[in-house]
Write a protein that binds this DNA or RNA. Structure first.
Ligand SMILES: Nc1nc2c(ncn2[C@H]2C[C@H](O)[C@@H](COP(=O)(O)OP(=O)(O)OP(=O)(O)O)O2)c(=O)[nH]1
Ligand SMILES: [Mg+2]
Ligand SMILES: [Mg+2]
Length: 430
DNA sequence: GCCGTTTTCGGCCCGACTGTTTTCAGTCG
């Protein structure tokens, strides 16, 4: 699978082109890198099956980039990339990971100080050579040194499941504030992407300064990257960043749309707005100077002739085209889930009682819950033997009569013996 | 470099924060 390799090469080419002030070509390469990152299929398979023609059918891939993909798949090299790299032999991948360092600064640092990699950068910053540079100063030199240190301890992307508890905690810390109105997770967390690069949060308030002041002094923050009245960004000690945006109530929908992304989805919406003679930003949809939508996301989508699109679908994979034709798929929501079919209780290795589990399921509007504790010989999970299993069944019947509005069903996660048979007799299971 | 039921040429999303700058470039979301 060469998708990742190609994406990284095109990302670097984008930075090199930006150094050469070729902004639009740079954007084309950066776009195609993002497309490759989220491409489900192996680029090699696509090429083998359909050749360069199939490559060009990938959005944002045209003749030029298809040729480069083909060249890489055939030879393992891209001449254009090697040429750019020879012109500026710098490790753009590592250097751009330093917060605040981009292609233009890399160019200056290379041309004036010969900086090629992180080590070089740290060295020239330590001896004060950066501060003396035109366009830089004492502050930027200090920031660079700090940012290098944080880049070294950065953990990259996080699993959604690992970050959700943290999101709840930070949201909880902000909710306490009387100045905070609405608050919501945004970004890749709200889109429920499997991995997230950071935590994005949106709040409404008529006193944003107070909210921001509170935000940047939350416990566990090790660095404030930026702080302003509508946008602040911090690093937590867990190695992840958190961005907070604060807007007025009237802009909540537009801001939530903007901050939920993804980036390409946003750009497509904004282009759609332009086509209609409108302007879309995080404050609303505007006709000339007047805001015509912004309070809710639905309002924003409708103002540009689209149905509401669920966050999970905002991935720039055809959802806008589907929306225009009213062919959006229905996604399975929490309220579509009718019951729980696998759960453990304190009868085996769970922590809650049957009654507590049933009540929790009822609270979630489930119609039924199946109790499936371990059963058989596995002592490590406190598995039920036949006697206890039968006793549990009687208990389930009893609790079922006590709690109305939910059906408690009997089941179990039964061990399989070495000979392939089940560890509980059929008569008991039936 | 990509793209098109307004275009095969001429556009390409739009705004916040910082530092260094006397008016804005660079980076980031
Ligand atoms: N219009 C516009 N919106 C952007 C741009 N960059 C980011 N955004 C919006 C959409 C993103 O989903 C949102 C949050 O930015 P992030 O960089 O945190 O991206 P996101 O959370 O989608 O992915 P992540 O998992 O953090 O890498 O901000 C941009 O260049 N233009
Ligand atoms: Mg994010
Ligand atoms: Mg972010």
């Amino acid at each position: 699978m060469k998708n990742l390799e190609l994406s990284q090469i095109f990302s670097q080419m984008s930075e090199f082109l930006e150094m050469k002030e070729d902004g639009f070509r740079a954007r084309a390469y950066s776009r195609v890198a993002r497309v490759l990152d989220s491409l489900e299929r192996d680029i090699g398979d696509i090429y083998r099956e359909g050749g360069a023609k199939a490559l060009k059918e990938i959005p944002s891939v045209g003749r030029g980039i298809a040729e480069k993909m083909e060249e890489y798949l055939k030879t393992g090299k891209i001449k254009e990339y090697q040429k750019l790299k020879k012109e500026s032999p710098v490790d753009v991948e590592a250097l751009t990971k330093v917060e605040g360092i981009g292609p233009k600064k890399i160019k200056t640092l290379y041309q004036k100080l010969g900086v090629r990699n992180l080590k070089d950068l740290e060295k020239v910053a330590r001896v004060g050579e950066i501060a003396a540079l035109e366009g830089f100063g004492a502050k930027s030199e200090k920031n660079i040194l700090q940012a290098i240190a944080f880049a070294k301890t950065s953990k990259g992307r996080f699993l959604l499941g690992a970050i959700l508890p943290v999101v709840r905690e930070v949201v909880g810390g902000l909710e306490k504030l009387p100045e905070v109105g609405q608050i919501s997770a945004a970004g890749s967390v709200r889109r429920m992407k499997e991995t997230v690069g950071d935590v994005d949060l949106l709040a409404t308030s008529s006193q944003p300064d107070k909210v921001m002041e509170h935000f940047v002094s939350l416990p566990g923050i090790v660095k404030v990257w930026a702080k302003g009245p509508t946008k602040s960004s911090v690093r937590f000690k867990g190695g992840f960043d958190c961005d907070l945006r604060v807007v007025k109530r009237v802009s909540f929908g537009a801001a939530l749309q903007y901050f939920t992304g993804n980036k390409e989805h946003n750009i497509l919406l904004r282009r759609l707005a332009i086509k209609k003679g409108l302007k879309l930003n995080e404050y609303g949809v505007y006709k000339k100077k007047t805001r015509i939508a912004g309070r809710t996301e639905k309002e924003v989508y409708q103002a540009i002739s689209l149905p509401y699109i669920e966050p999970e679908l905002r991935t720039n994979t055809g959802e806008i085209g589907a929306g225009l034709k009213n062919e959006l798929p229905k996604i399975i929501g929490y309220d579509n889930i009718k019951g729980e079919t696998q759960c453990h209780t304190d009868w085996s290795d769970g922590t809650e009682t049957i009654e507590a589990m049933a009540k929790a399921a009822k609270k979630m509007d489930y119609q039924y819950i199946v109790i499936t504790d371990h059963a058989g010989f596995l002592k490590i999970a406190n598995g039920l033997d036949e006697k206890r299993l039968l006793r549990q069944m009687r208990e389930i019947d009893k609790i079922g009569k006590e709690i109305s509005g939910i059906k408690i069903l009997k089941g179990c996660e039964v061990d399989i013996k070495m000979d392939g048979g089940l560890a509980i007799k059929d008569e008991v299971l039936a």
